[in-house]
């Protein structure tokens, strides 16, 4: 699905991401962990196109994408849910989610002005997939509220719905569980499991090693912009380098 080779991106002489190579298989759930400043979010920004790498290649389904802009990559099936609330203020939850369908719409302004069959069909599909996405994340009851009126946790869930509405091939989740209460975390984990069960390829950045270990097929550990270790969650939790660098303490028995 996604192949990253030798990716580097410095900021003012310091490498935020350095020579990182990652291979994510179709339908895999890959966890990305690492201490603060390890380059996890930078890696996501490089994949989604908000940053350009100075070196390296990114291949999505055998197409080179590192030169494409963010909106072009979204149209090729990469969706991202940010840690912060990247919401459309002044628009309702439903409208926020609806806009997520843009990644797969083909009708233009002329179609909309002339109300062509393509426009009508897509308009109908957008409404259906919006309702389906809202239902799936459990926000249907909130659909007509303004997005900014939602609590932070639900704003993030709304972003997940927005991403799903575009029917992505690869979903990037940047610390979706941070700031959530226990029950919300549990619901989020179930949602992520469900998405993965549906065949979606997911990359998940998470601070909480327990949370991500329960979900991920494989973990990639970043430290100071470089890959420290990679493997199945149980291997990673036994890896001495990881324990020293990432946890900074002896492992729990």
């Amino acid at each position: 699905m996604l192949r990253i080779e030798g990716l580097s991106r410095p900021f003012g002489g310091v490498y935020a991401v350095r020579n990182v190579s990652v291979d994510v298989a179709d339908g895999e759930l890959r966890g990305i962990i690492g201490p603060n400043g390890a380059g996890k979010s930078t890696l996501f920004n490089l994949i989604s196109g908000h940053l350009r790498p100075t070196q390296g290649r990114i291949t999505l389904r055998s197409e080179r994408i590192e030169g494409l802009s963010a909106h072009e990559r979204a149209r090729r099936g990469i969706a991202i849910v940010f840690q912060g609330a990247r919401i459309f203020r002044g628009m309702t939850v439903r409208e926020n989610v609806m806009v997520g369908a843009h990644a797969r719409t083909r009708h233009g302004f002329l179609d909309a002005a002339l109300r062509t069959p393509l426009h009508k069909r897509e308009e109908r599909e957008i409404r259906q997939s919006t309702d389906a996405a809202l239902e799936r994340v459990g926000l249907a009851d909130w659909a007509d509220r303004y997005a900014e009126a939602l609590p932070l946790g639900q704003q993030r869930t709304m972003q997940v719905a927005r991403a799903l509405c575009g029917e992505p091939a690869l979903l990037l989740l940047d610390e979706p569980a941070s700031g959530l209460r226990a029950r919300e975390r549990h619901e989020l984990a179930r949602l992520i499991e469900g998405l993965r069960g549906g065949g979606l390829t997911i990359m998940l950045i998470e601070h909480d090693v327990q949370f991500v270990s329960n979900l991920a097929d494989r973990l990639t550990v970043l430290n100071l912009g470089e890959i420290l270790a990679e493997g199945a969650p149980e291997e990673i939790r036994r890896n001495d380098d990881v324990i020293t660098a990432y946890l900074g303490r002896e492992p729990a028995p």
């Binding site: 963010a70 909106h71 002044g90 628009m91 806009v99 997520g100 843009h102 308009e123 927005r162």
Partner: peptide, 25 residues
């Protein structure tokens, strides 16, 4: 009413997030 109208409004509300969903701002 139309979907594209929403996409247009999304551009000024949050250009960054608009690009994420594939809108050429």
């Amino acid at each position: 009413r139309a979907y594209l109208g929403k996409a247009l409004s999304a551009c000024s509300s949050n250009p960054y997030a608009a690009r994420v969903v594939g809108i050429d701002v």
